[in-house]
Design a protein around this nucleic acid. Structure first.
Length: 468
RNA sequence: GGCCCGUUCGUCUAUCGGUUAGGACACCAGGUUUUCAACCUGGGAAGAGGGGUUCGACUCCCCUACGGGCUGCCA
């Protein structure tokens, strides 16, 4: 086995919230590294000073944290490393793999226009300074361009896309250091990935073409090229590029909508990746199974139904304490009122009968409404309809019977059945008003479970309220 | 325009030349049931189109169509 530990990284631009697609990229990097005892690093690509904001950085860190994607060490600021980037650009200059280019934006535009006028189908800019004698250099601002090969081809050995060949004459001599001495993204990523010891670059396939130029920088510096893995982007349900009109695109939205983090991880892992028929799994299983070879090559669409189904599975198998903790966090994220100590206690007691019926936290809370609400209970219209005069009379009698009952499921069952039989009605006819009285809803957990959770005194009080 | 990538049920996908093309979500039907769920059983549902290669193609090659990406002194 190789002794070289795996190092991956997630490198978002802090220009907005953490996108669901970015979150999945981070997840893949995290799974790959963590599943193999490697490191997962975080780098904030904040070199675009106009668009980068500290708020966006905070939102990204928060989103990753919510998803449980922990990174090693401190997040690296790309902007802070600008001197190092410039240093490498000058080293390339010294090595003769880069040169000073004095061409102005106007000259470049003119070059392209001229080529197109000649009927060229494309116009890769060719700087006149590429092989110029330094003695002829003017005293003017210059950019540093990489001296890229003009013939031959560059092959990207990609773990997802296979070998991708790009003709070198399709690529221009990209600028590595701007005339204001700031590094370009193309240079910065390569230098940072190299310095951070990144062994596997797993990122969106919108960077696939860039990889060829970046590989040239590695070559120019004599550095080892990392393993590339360009993963397809996520699309909206309609197959179009994900955008705001698709609804939730920020991971924060999903948290605020009450999706459990474990369900999100499971769903996102399966979006564009598969291992046989594995569908539902916890994080440890995902860590053990995940590999680059299971990543698909075509963009996947978001399917909220499947997300919900996956989340339901995770909620049902969550441990109560952890679930409660996550529900409290959800309430805060959704800016809903926090639970009182009494509500927390009752919700905890009610979890066993609600957690396997909910796909999201708001749904779970709705199912647990009977435990969280307090008297007097105002029934919803559908529930109120069940509390007619006859039903109230029966409830009154039931109340009497319950006052001396042992509060066990077995005894409650026999009492309810006796009352129903005595009135010549089916159990459903009795359960319906009882449900309305206890919860004020027409869709609830079993009436027995509700009575057991809220207890004898509260049950009787609610029945008396309803019968009055 | 040029270059690069992609295309299996509605959706996520399995298949790595030979399968009645499998699973999951969703959907439909039935069952269970005190409601809503959950759960159980069954069902419909796919290889973009056209050429090759091969004894044999979803799998390999080419073309077309469609989708996406790149083509910046943005990242």
């Amino acid at each position: 086995m190789s002794s070289a530990p795996i190092v991956t990284r997630f490198a978002p631009s802090p220009t907005g919230y953490l996108h669901i697609g970015g979150a999945r990229t981070a997840l893949f990097n995290w799974l790959f590294a963590r599943g193999r005892g490697g490191k997962f690093l975080l780098r904030i690509e904040d070199t675009d000073r106009e668009r980068s904001t500290p708020e966006a950085t905070a939102a990204i860190l928060q989103g990753l944290t919510w998803l449980g994607l922990d990174w090693d060490g401190e997040a690296v600021s790309q902007f802070d490393r600008r001197d190092r980037h410039a240093e490498v650009a000058h080293e390339m200059l010294a090595r003769g793999t880069a040169y000073k280019c004095f061409s102005s934006a106007e000259e470049i535009a003119a070059f392209r226009a001229a080529r197109e006028a000649e009927g060229a189908s494309y116009a890769v800019f060719q700087s006149p300074w590429r092989d110029a004698d330094p003695a002829t250099y003017p005293d003017a601002p210059y950019a540093i361009r990489m001296k890229a090969p003009r013939s031959g081809e560059t092959v990207i050995r990609d773990s997802v896309q296979g070998n991708v060949t790009v003709r070198n004459d399709q690529l221009d001599d990209m600028i590595v250091l701007r005339s204001d001495h700031t590094p370009t993204y193309m240079l910065a990523v390569v230098v940072d990935d190299h310095d951070m010891g990144v062994t596997h670059v797993i990122r969106g396939d919108d960077h696939l073409n860039n990889a060829a130029r970046q590989q040239m920088v590695y070559d120019a510096m004599g550095w080892d090229v990392p393993v590339w893995a360009h993963i397809p982007l996520i699309h909206g349900p309609d197959g179009k590029k994900l955008s705001k009109r698709h609804g939730a695109t920020a991971v924060g939205d999903y948290q605020a909508q009450g999706y459990p983090a474990a369900g999100m991880r499971n769903y996102l892992t399966r979006l564009g990746w598969a291992k046989g028929d594995a569908e539902l799994f916890d994080t440890d299983e995902a860590l053990a199974m995940f590999g680059l070879d299971g990543i698909g090559r075509s963009p996947a669409r978001l399917d909220f139904k499947k997300l919900e189904s996956t989340c339901g599975w995770h909620i049902a198998r969550s441990e109560d304490a952890a679930l409660l903790h996550e529900i409290n966090a959800y309430l805060a994220a959704a800016q809903r009122p926090a639970l009182t100590p009494g509500q927390k206690d009752l919700l905890h007691k009610a979890l066993y009968c609600v957690k396997d019926r909910a796909k999201t936290f708001p749904e779970l809370l709705e199912k647990a409404h009977f435990a969280l609400t307090s008297r007097p209970i105002v029934p919803e219209p559908a529930a109120a309809a069940a509390l007619d005069t006859v039903s109230r009379g029966i409830l009154k009698e039931l109340t009497l019977r319950l006052q001396n009952a042992n509060w066990t499921k077995a005894e409650l069952e026999s009492i309810l059945n006796e009352v129903a039989t005595a009135h010549g009605i089916g159990f459903g006819k009795l359960a319906s008003p009882l449900r309305a009285a206890l919860a004020g809803r027409s869709a609830t957990p079993s009436v027995y479970d509700m009575m057991l959770v809220i207890g004898q005194d509260e049950t009787i009080a609610r029945l008396q309220d309803a019968a009055a």
